[in-house]
Nucleic acid binder design. Structure first.
Length: 453
RNA sequence: GGGGAUGUGGGGUAACCUGGCAAGCCUGCGGGCUUUGGGAGCCCGAGAUCCCGGUUCAAAUCCGGGCAUCCCCA
């Protein structure tokens, strides 16, 4: 089913808000988002991150401090130049990302090796003045995300954190959300503004474009130097911290969930984030028994009773199927008389079980049905890349280099196919065979090429 | 950033080119009756021409601007 219809019938967002790139997220969408936040925050806290809040506005001077970072974001920030009737002398921006909001404070907080590491996460909103076509949840001028900002005594610790970030992403996105993705090191020409290295997670949407849903950056000492984040180590040497930051695109993950798992009927949601894991649909006059069933399951599962009057059961089945509820619990006279419930899964399986029996099995079944694999094919030539992109896949190919010397060949791909080199796998060591499909040089990397959002 | 197209009840659309009936249809929404084990039926009802200006006896329709959406190109 197409993306726009899914948003509409899933009651996820209302795109009619009259400001470009800004949308309303409706309760059903927001309930999913809250569950997404919870999954990630639990994992982050398990990895000893602490929650923090930072203001949404950043003074212009702070934003300017790291030159490359400023250059990267200057064109896409919302400026606050006037307040009330006053023109502001010192302007602000609405944060497009929070490095320059947070690091001046880190400079104040971090003094000694005893203060490290610092690992904080911020769940919140950022704003970017996107001028390209916006798309609900996929590219907006306002979006929800989580960003961590970590400071370590040295490079080694920082790099270890990057692996942990990717592990967290894997635990949630692959295991709990059932989304397939690839982890890349981005080519040099596609780094985060101000970062030494950028790692990213891409998933492939059904329309054949990849969507970046999370990134983690190794910032090195770049920001520490301009924001003066120094500590004294055990040997009384003054040193700059090494930093990482990890961004998790909540809106985009929601978009991917909706779009990738859907079928012809509508949404299909993994049980980990479904607003309702099961909906009770009563048939006939069985209120008392319905309440009994609800009480049996409500403290273990997210359960909703659909007791709307005057709507036929069939209509309710269809309604909740469209919204992607994993399990429907059907309760009528038969169930009441036998102290049972009927389970009907989103995938169409029906079974009558005893009241009190666990629903886990059916939720697991629901989630297992959601497993899918992205279309990735090997390209042995530049023509192959075209063919693979044509059918909406990701092309895997030997390429000269993801470092700056490879950029000119990347340009050729970009021009020819309007596609991007997403990078080299980091979860897997891939050795290229033969020649670069563009330059004919000896290939140093195996890269993945795809159209992107 | 450049170009093109579009804007009609909550959603999808007809009428627009060639100005003129009470702005039609499907769906959704509210009420009533009848129903209820996989999208029920009948009756009633609420709900729209994006905004500002212009042309005209008359504008959803033509013109200008704004806003918004979609597509293509950089």
């Amino acid at each position: 089913m197409d993306y726009d219809s899914l948003l509409e019938l899933g009651d996820i967002v209302d795109i009619r808000y009259p400001a470009k790139g800004f949308i309303v997220i409706k309760p059903y969408g927001m309930m999913i988002i809250k569950n997404l936040y919870k999954l990630f925050e639990e994992q982050l806290e398990k990895d000893r991150h602490l929650p923090i809040h930072f203001p949404a506005i950043i003074p212009e001077n702070n934003l300017r401090l790291e030159g490359e970072h400023f250059k990267g974001f200057e064109g896409e920030v919302f400026w606050i130049t006037k307040a009330g009737l006053n023109e502001l002398q010192d302007k602000y921006v609405l944060r497009p990302t929070s490095e320059t909001a947070i690091y001046p404070m880190y400079s104040l907080w971090i003094k000694s090796w005893r203060d490290l590491p610092v690992k904080y996460y911020l769940s919140g909103t950022v704003w970017r003045y996107e001028t390209k076509a916006t798309r609900p949840l996929i590219r907006g001028r306002e979006f929800l995300w989580i960003e961590t900002h970590d400071a370590f005594p040295d490079q080694e610790h920082a790099r270890t954190q990057i692996n942990k970030d990717l592990e967290i992403a894997n635990n949630v996105i692959k295991d709990r959300l059932k989304l397939d993705f690839l982890m890349f090191r981005r080519p040099d020409w596609d780094r985060f503004a101000g970062a030494v290295e950028t790692y990213a997670i891409d998933t492939l949407l059904p329309d054949g474009k990849v969507l970046q849903i999370a990134t983690t950056h190794y910032l090195g000492e770049n920001f520490a130097k301009v924001f003066n984040i120094k500590y004294v180590d055990r040997d009384e040497n003054e040193k700059y911290v090494h930093q990482t930051c990890f961004g998790i695109g909540i809106n985009r993950i929601l978009a991917a969930l909706i779009y990738i798992h859907a079928d012809e009927i509508g949404l299909r949601l993994p049980s980990s984030i479904a607003p309702y894991q099961a909906v009770i649909i009563p048939i006939g006059d069985v209120d008392e028994y319905v309440n009994k069933v609800y009480n049996v399951y409500a403290n273990k599962y997210r359960i909703h009773i659909d007791n709307r009057d005057g709507i036929t059961p069939g209509n309710k089945f269809y309604y909740w199927d469209k919204k992607g509820v994993p399990i429907k619990i059907i309760i009528g006279k038969i169930e009441k008389d036998n102290n049972t419930i009927e389970i009907s899964t989103r995938s169409g399986k029906k079974e009558r079980i005893d009241l009190g029996e666990s629903l886990d099995k059916y939720l697991e079944l629901n989630d297992k049905d959601l497993d899918y694999k992205m279309k990735i094919y090997d390209a042995k030539s530049i023509e192959d890349v075209g063919k693979i992109l044509e059918i909406g896949g990701i092309a895997r190919a030997p390429f000269y280099s993801i470092y700056k010397e490879g950029e000119e060949y990347y340009r050729e791909i970009k021009e020819k196919f309007k596609a991007e080199i997403r990078g080299v796998r980091i979860d897997k060591d891939e050795k290229p065979e033969g020649q670069c499909i563009v330059s004919g040089r000896k290939a140093e990397h195996v890269v993945y090429i795809a159209k992107q959002y």
